[in-house]
Simulated assay, not measured.
Amino acid sequence: MTTSEPLVVKVGGAAAVDPAGALADVAALRDDRDVVVVHGGSTAMDETLERLGIEPEYVETPDGVVGRFTDAETMDVFTMVMPGLVNTDLVVGLQNHGVNAVGLSGVDGRLLHGPRKSAVRVVEDGKKKIRRGDHSGSIESVNHELLTTLLDTGYTPVVSVPMLGDEGPDADPRFTAVNSDADRSAAAVAGALGADLVLLTDTRGVYRDPDDETTVVDRVDTPAAFTELQTVAQGFMRRKVMAAAEALRRGAPTVVVASANADAPIQAALSGAGTTVTADALETDDATADDEEPS
C-alpha cells in the first residue's frame, strides 16, 4: 500500500546511462510510492538507424535547443525501437526486480495526445529556416485516468513515445503516431498526475560550467535562479530545463535533474542530489514553451 504522492521517473536513453540502478530503485520505492517510468532511447535509435544505413539527423532551433528531426523513414524506425526494443527491455528488467510493470506507448488509450507539427524552425549554416516533413507533436492531453487505474491495481506503467498526433478533424486519417521529446513527455505525465518528476541522465545535474561536474546547480527556487539556470544550460541540457518548466507549469511540485548512475539514483535525487527546481522558481505569468521545437 503506497503512502505518498506519485512519482514520475524519466530514464534517459544516452549511451552513458545505465538503467539498472533506476530499475532497482523503483522496486525499492514501490511499497511507499506509486511510480510511473517514462524513458528515452536516443542511443538505441541512432544505433538502429546506422545499422539500416540511415544517418541520424539533429537540428538546432533559433533558441539553441538541439533535437532530433524525424522524417517519415526515421519515424518508421522510431515506432520499432522505442515501444518495441527499449520499452520491452525496461519492462523485463522491472519484472526481474519483482515489479509488475506494464509497457505503454503514447498512442495506447490516447495516453499522450496532441497536434502534429509538420514544420519546425531551425538554424542551418547560421541562417534561420523552416524545415518541413517533421513527424513530431506537442502533447496537449494525458490520459491520467489510465495511469491511475494501473497504479491503483498494483501495476507500474512504463511509458514510451510515440504520442498520438492529431492531424485535424478534416484529415484522413485524422490520427498518426509521431515523435515527442521524452523529457517533455515525462513533464506532461508528471503535470497530469501532480507528481514530482526526476529526470535521470548522464550528468550529476545542470552545471554552471558544462566541463566541470563540481559546478552543479543544486537548488532553484526563485525566478532569478531559474533565469540563471536557463543561461548556463547548454546543448541537450537546455531541453531538460525546458521540460522542468513545463512540468511545474502543468502542476508538478518539484523537478530534479540528476545522475542515473549514482547509487540508488532516484532516492538520491529525492534527497538533494542533482539540480532541484521548485514551482517557486517560475514567474506566475511565465510564458509556455515554444511548441515548434524539434523532438
Rank of each mutant, 00 (worst) to 15 (best):
L7E: 05
V8D: 00
G12D: 00
G13F: 11
A14P: 09
V17I: 11
V26C: 07
A27V: 07
A28D: 07
D31R: 02
D34H: 15
V38R: 01
V38P: 00
G40W: 06
R51V: 14
V59T: 08
G64M: 00
G64S: 04
V65G: 03
F69A: 12
D71H: 02
M75C: 04
D76A: 11
V77K: 00
M80A: 11
V81M: 03
V86C: 10
Q95P: 15
G98R: 09
L104R: 05
G109M: 04
R110T: 10
L111K: 07
R116V: 10
K117W: 13
R121N: 14
R131I: 14
R132Q: 10
R132M: 13
S136M: 09
S138Y: 06
N143Q: 03
L146D: 01
L150F: 07
Y155T: 03
S160D: 08
L164I: 02
D166A: 08
E167P: 14
D170F: 15
P173C: 14
A186L: 04
A190E: 01
L193N: 01
L200I: 08
Y207I: 07
R219Q: 12
P223V: 06
G235Q: 13
A252E: 03
P253L: 12
V257Y: 00
Q267E: 10
L270W: 10
T278F: 10
L282S: 09
D285Q: 15
T288F: 13
P294L: 12
S295M: 13
S295C: 15
